[in-house]
Design a protein around this nucleic acid. Structure first.
Length: 295
DNA sequence: AGTTGTCAAGCTAGT
DNA sequence: ACTAGCTTGACAACT
């Protein structure tokens, strides 16, 4: 089981998500920011390696405005060597990488332009992983999208648009159950039709489910990951106490996490801790799992 | 140096 | 009609 955290390390004095305002776009700015981001990504991965945190989600600001029409600069060629070097480090040390384009990426929108923009967004995410020469075990995850008052057609639209995607995207794309619209059951039904792997988000499942236990859920999800996709990825969080349902906790709730490990014992999966305090919780979780699996 | 309004983009539920 | 929350806070202009 690999343990990871998303995008940001709070104790390293840098972020791999530096960006700039669209109004300040220039080739010079772009090059500088991407360079800074790659520098920082390298530092984060080194930290993670030292601490046995081999799962990491790379943030979507790594290349600012990569899918925006303003960005005509050939950054993939310009940074090719750097990406390759990072990719080698990732492979040599057996890291698992994921990326998660943000809420604007909706491939089942009824508006063609939104779908087009979403595909452009997926394309550059996948391209980053390709530039690093990472195999399809390194994934790009999205949600199914909107419902628009008619889930059946919304799902049909997802499938129809998915089938038109280039293989560079299809080989990496996975769908995640969300906390309001598309449950695990919905995702599995989609997966059955187009063989897309499903990422299980335990917290979203807690918010929206059809009665499946965590163990059952992971077992069901396991069937959607083929050998080339690697072992299953999952997202983990728990509810912030006192806040409204759906808000991620500030720090790892140890008792909840232990219970989760108990309930899912026997299933091999990589776990991404979507918790606000980032590496702090991941370090805690690493210790807990190390002891847990000793027994 | 620290604070705060604003930032490319979508969707949903709650007020 | 408007906002919070998801998401990954970070920028930049102001005290």
């Amino acid at each position: 089981m690999k343990i990871g955290y998303p995008c940001i390390n709070t104790r390293i004095n840098c972020t791999s998500n530096t960006t700039f305002r669209l109004a300040n776009y220039s080739e010079e700015n772009l090059i500088k920011k991407v360079n800074d981001n790659l520098d920082c990504l390298e530092k984060i991965l080194k930290f993670n390696l030292q601490n046995d945190l081999l799962f990491f989600r790379i943030g979507s600001n790594l290349v600012p405005f990569a899918s925006h029409p303003i960005c005509t600069f050939d950054w993939p060629s310009f940074f090719k060597k750097r990406f390759q070097k990072l990719g080698k480090f990732i492979k040599d040390n057996n890291f698992r990488i994921s990326m998660h384009p943000s809420q604007f990426t909706v491939i089942n929108s009824p508006q063609e332009e939104i779908v087009r923009n979403s595909i452009a967004e997926l394309k550059w995410h996948c391209q980053v992983l390709d530039l690093m020469n990472l195999n399809p075990e390194h994934k790009v995850q999205i949600h199914v999208g909107g419902v628009y008052g008619d889930k059946v057609s919304a799902i049909d639209r997802f499938i129809k648009n998915y089938l038109k995607l280039p293989s560079s995207i299809k080989k990496r794309l996975v769908i995640e159950n969300d906390d309001r619209s598309y449950s695990l059951k919905d995702c599995l039904a989609i997966s059955k039709k187009i063989a897309i792997p499903v990422i299980f988000d335990s917290f979203h499942h807690f918010c929206l489910n059809n009665g499946e236990s965590f163990y059952q859920s992971l077992k069901l999800v396991q069937k959607t990951w083929s050998k080339k996709d690697g072992i299953i990825m999952s997202d983990y969080s728990s509810q912030e106490k006192g806040a409204k349902e759906g808000k991620h906790t500030q720090s790892l709730v140890v008792s909840d996490f232990r219970r989760y490990l108990e309930e899912t014992r026997g299933i091999d999966f990589d776990i991404m801790l979507e918790i606000k305090d980032k590496e702090r919780s991941a370090l805690q979780a690493r210790k807990i799992t190390n002891n847990f699996f000793k027994n």
